[in-house]
Every structure is written in structure tokens, then in C-alpha cells.
Design a protein around this nucleic acid. Structure first.
Lengths: 148, 148
DNA sequence: CCCCCTGACTTTAAAGATCGAACCCAGGAT
DNA sequence: ATCCTGGGTTCGATCTTTAAAGTCAGGGGG
């Protein structure tokens, strides 16, 4: 990841975000957190080796995307679980954008769709570009400008 | 990346997208393509080693995000440049989501902002969640559902 | 006291990915 | 013929991830 933090990349929000989110497994771990996983063993369900899981949870906590919270069940010791911070929750559009792209361009076979659901209306939600006046903008009508 | 394609992950659009887009450098290369880079040497500006660049461009072409096009300048040989396909262009929300997160949560220092601009209105564009009825949904009001 | 169990990690060597430096290739110009 | 330029490739070193084995710690039970 260091090589991606050249002077020019260091001020680029995309490169900066990728410095932590681009590390293997991190976005899938965040997805797990979004669907409710909190415990070490729950995060293992994505198939990540435990050594990597331990290291990644540490990275996500240090980067402020997850936080540790102590919990204790009856007859059990105090343990720690991992919960999304606001910064972690703010990564939701990244996951949604990846999901949208994957749905559109990959052959994923027959399966129930993954869902991003509006809690208040109960209907599914997807990402759109919106301009400063609140108008929808088609993605093909959005240009990326490099800072000078 | 293979371990991320467990049976359960294989049908997940996020994991599937990450199988190609999650590879180091690929999203930054797409960003370069969006701002107009087409040639091998132009992509090098992100600081990627040439060996990795060669391999990555091949991956992005094979995955259908970039395509090669022959070009020839006067007095020069025929060369190939790399241009976004529709699948490549459809990755724009991913870059925008990363940029939004980076802008919000990283200390990037003083610099001109990176821009996503609506071509027709000239104003900046950002991502929002929208429900099936076209209504804006706040991200904190979006729930991620795991497929059963 | 010891043992067991369970969940949460850690250790270690091997495999895989990325990198830096050197190098090669090919076509056009001289 | 050589030189130049752009587009790569090769290769050994370094870093990252992995699989397998292991440790740790607290609570319960004998």
C-alpha cells in the first residue's frame, strides 16, 4: 500500500481511501459488519484466515471504521465485539456501488439478490448521482476532473 | 483473490467485483482512464511499476473494463491505447463513493478537490441513495440485507 | 486443586503478490 | 548502420497472505 501513497496520491481521496479499504478482505469485513456480524467467529464466515482476520480487525479499528465494545454473556468471560463507527457506516455507498457493478457486469448465477433497503419505505435503494440542485444525473453524464 | 471466491462469496456481487477491482492498483488505473489517460506511459503517473502496469492493463482488458485500440501518430508506428468500455465506465460510482468517503474521513491537507461534474449542468455531482419511488434516502436509513 | 470447553486470537513456515532495476523489442528517423 | 522513443518483460528481492498448528484465558465441573 505504501507505493500507492506517492505525493500525488497522498492528496487524492480515492487513493487515501484505498490505503485502508483496498487492503484485501477489508471491504468484505465491513459488509459483514453491516449485516450484523460483531464477533470474531462471525467474521470468519467470509473464509478469511484467522491470522488475517485478527490483523484486519485491528487495522479497521485503528482506522476508525470499527470500534471494540466489551460484552459478556452469562457464565462467560468478558469479550470484545466489533461494531461500525460512523466512518464505517459512511462506507456503505462504496459497498453499494460495488454491488451494483457486480450485479450488472458479472455472471453470478441464480441466487437471491443482495439487498440495500430503505428502512422507512421498505423498498430497495440504489445509488444515483445527484447534482448541486438535487437533480438526478446519469452516470454517463458525469465527468471526472483531475485537480490541477 | 482466490480465497475470496468461496462458494458463498462467488454469488456475492461485492466479492465478485472485488475479485477484479480489488486487485492492487486497478481502481486507480480506472480513475486515470476516467480523467483521460489512454497510453501506457500516462498510466505510469500513478507510480505503478511497469511490470505491474503491464499485468494490470491485461487484467482490466480481459475483465472487460478496458479495451485496446490501435493508434498511430505521424512518423510513428502503430501502437495501442487503452480506453474504458461501458463496464469500465459503470465503475464510476465506486470511484465516486471512495472519493466521498476519503473527503469526509481523511485528512488530505490543503488541495483542490477532485471533481465529479455533471456535464450538462456543470455543477458537481455526488452519490445519493434513491429508493424505488425515486425518493432520496439517507445512507443511515439504508439497511444491508444478507441473502438467505 | 485439575481438567475441559469455548472463543479469541497468535505463531510459523510456505505460497503468492508486488516491487526495483535491468533489460529487451520494434518501428521510424537520421 | 545507429539512435531514439514508447511499450513493455524478466528476475531476484521484498512484502503480504495463507494453512496449519498452537496458545491463552475465563468459567464451569469434578
Amino acid at each position: 500500500m505504501d507505493a500507492m501513497l506517492l505525493p500525488a496520491n497522498k492528496t487524492c481521496p480515492i487513493a487515501g481511501a484505498l490505503a485502508v479499504l483496498g487492503q484485501k478482505w477489508n471491504l468484505l469485513l465491513l459488509r459483514e459488519a453491516f449485516v450484523g456480524s460483531t464477533r470474531f467467529a462471525e467474521f470468519q464466515r467470509i473464509g478469511i484466515p484467522t491470522a488475517t482476520l485478527g490483523a484486519r480487525l485491528e487495522v479497521l479499528v485503528e482506522a476508525g471504521l470499527l470500534e471494540r465494545q466489551a460484552y459478556q454473556e452469562e457464565g462467560e468471560r468478558t469479550r470484545e465485539e466489533y461494531r461500525l463507527t460512523q466512518a464505517g457506516r459512511d462506507a456503505l455507498p462504496i459497498l453499494a456501488a460495488l454491488a451494483q457493478w457486480g450485479e450488472t457486469h458479472l455472471d453470478l448465477g441464480a441466487r437471491p439478490k443482495v439487498g440495500f433497503v430503505s428502512v422507512s419505505s421498505g423498498s430497495s435503494a440504489h445509488l444515483e448521482f445527484v447534482d448541486e440542485n438535487g437533480k438526478l444525473v446519469k452516470a454517463d453524464n458525469v465527468r471526472v476532473e483531475r485537480a490541477a
